[in-house]
Design a protein around this nucleic acid. Structure first.
Lengths: 335, 335
DNA sequence: AAGAGTTGCGTAAACGTTTACGTTTCTATT
DNA sequence: AATAGAAACGTAAACGTTTACGCAACTCTT
């Protein structure tokens, strides 16, 4: 059905080699003939067959996007969807496609996608991927970039947001409102983002001389329910905090629930800042102050990085951190 | 690097044809030899090269997932992400992969994905896809299934949720609470889901003898802001409604804002029901009564349908509707 | 004007499968 | 025991590209 190189060649009484050269503008074909090839190519609606091409070039012009299927770490909002779409938009401008695969903890370490040589590179997303899987891939020499994940022991191409900086800014802002007993509700400490956010919080407290007041509780999940539970522990303790910085918006909303259950008003009795800027944050009452993550930017950078690696696999690893933004609303105590 | 059929053949002193037959368990190879082939295949870590295979079979074992890049119709929650993941999970059990592509309104009608014969079928998702693109694809004979979309004039393989039934149940529930002046805030009427939800609402009113009280406003977007605007119009009118059924949760939250701005309490002065059951609905105060959509089920069905079509392209089109569920919380007036 | 270099094109092999068609060997029928 | 048929395996072509190599016909130097 679809036109092939041979169809064009026969129509012009030339060889398929010349046709191929003309279409891939490689040297070795006269400019007049080249033009005639181009013309009849569009006339016949020619589109190169990818299977044939990649059989000989061993290039597929496809990158794999690997994600944990139930991975909505810092919110029940699908966190990674905007990143995925941004990657796709960027890749498509370079004639690349994206192949999706989910990988839960008990999946085999090897991806069929790469074994069958369906992809030229891999973008691994999220902190919940099997660490053994991650390291085995980044040491394989196969082009890999990590998003929101980072192996501790080895350099890798990584795209993160500035979790530490964002957390520092959030905590500092609460300090600026006059709070001294500021607590932190964090995520699992084996997530790089949780560690960085916690570290940013600690640094801010230290720089303000409030080191002794540091108070953090880390849970294994980051849902609203666990946020509520964590806040309950803090609020029911001997010296309850007057402000809470939660590692994500969902937990911040949970904290607000715990506060409401104890008759505490926000931000009067308890100031609150989250992280992520999910859609619910804006519509909450009071509207939730939070840290915005530029996910589109992260996706774009991930896409560009993987393309660079594919074209030059020898490049040394680079870690990239995208800045965050404090978005002020009312839960922190601002007007 | 990767082992090929020839490697196995040489190791066993047989021909690649026999190896291929053994691995694809086709007849024509003795059971003892077949076993030895299987053994050395896993010994050498053989994985068939997809490019070579699909070059000769013209099958890629891949389906394309097409989505409008800024398509988060019934909420700012990425609506289609759970559907996408469910499709992937179902396809992977059948050794199929999924290739993602975004298609905005000004994209060319033809998908590179299919022209380059990278996919065996297409799943088109969402109401915002170019209608010309949709119809040109479903008439092409190429396997296509639609999700949350349906061409008016022609039969197609379609997966919808029971928008009409869900809306009917929502409106009927409000009527059960004693309301008579129930308004509807709807989405764009060129979306099939908007039309069905509107129709369900109308049917419920009619069946209750409240036909004369029907009152609907449709906007071009479905964000919180437009929900607020629509509710404002309704609440500021001569005979304001005592209950509102919104076509999605985001608009319902907007309506709650408009109510709050007018000093109206929920559900006392204004009862409210949404649609979708987004995460924010549960954490809103009061918690939002809404209609739950079984997106995972929709994805699973879409995946199965496309596989059926790929294996038998001649099958007559089937329209599937997944039932919805009323989830009762407080915004409707329930305890 | 003879040699060297360049340009334009064709020939053919290669990528790793699947599969139609032969050929041999085995089993079953008479 | 002779023959037919089935079963087991090999040969080779095909899928649609890319690309190394070869061979002309030019263009340029001296």
């Amino acid at each position: 059905m679809a036109a092939t190189l041979l169809d064009i060649a026969k129509k012009l009484n030339i060889s398929i080699a010349t046709v191929s050269r003309a279409l891939n503008d490689r040297p070795g074909v006269g400019s007049d003939l080249r033009q005639r090839v181009l013309d009849t190519a569009i006339e016949l609606g020619f589109v190169p067959n990818m299977a044939a091409r990649s059989l000989v070039t061993s290039r597929t012009q496809t990158v794999g996007f690997v994600i944990h299927p139930f991975d909505h770490p810092f919110s029940s909002d699908p966190f990674y969807f905007p990143i995925l779409m941004a990657i796709e938009v960027e890749l498509v401008t370079h004639d690349y496609h994206i192949m999706l695969t989910s990988l839960n903890s008990d999946s085999p370490i090897n991806l069929r996608m790469v074994d069958q040589s369906r992809v030229d590179g891999l973008i691994l997303v999220g902190p919940n991927l099997n660490p053994q899987f991650v390291t085995s891939n980044i040491t394989s020499g196969f082009p890999v970039v990590l998003v929101d994940n980072k192996p501790g022991h080895r350099k890798a191409n990584t795209i993160l947001c500035d979790d530490g900086g964002g957390a520092y800014e959030a905590a500092t802002h609460l300090i600026g409102h006059g709070h001294t007993r500021i607590a932190h509700i964090g995520g699992p400490l084996d997530w790089i983002s949780s560690r960085h956010r916690y570290a940013g919080y600690c640094a801010a407290m230290r720089d303000a001389g409030l080191e002794a007041n540091c108070r953090a509780v880390h849970k294994e999940s980051t849902t609203t329910a666990t946020g509520e539970k964590a806040a309950a522990e803090l609020l029911d303790s001997a010296e309850p905090p007057t402000a809470i910085f939660a590692a994500n918006d969902s937990m911040a909303l949970g904290a607000a629930r715990a506060a409401a259950a104890r008759g505490l008003t926000i931000p009067g009795d308890l100031a609150l800042i989250g992280f992520d800027n999910i859609s619910a944050a804006e519509h909450f009452s009071p509207p939730l102050t939070t840290i915005r993550i530029f996910k589109e930017q992260m996706g774009k950078l991930a896409a560009r990085r993987i393309l660079e690696l594919i074209n030059d696999p020898g490049m040394p690893p680079v870690e990239t951190s995208v800045s965050t933004e404090l978005v002020l609303r009312q839960s922190c105590g601002c007007a």
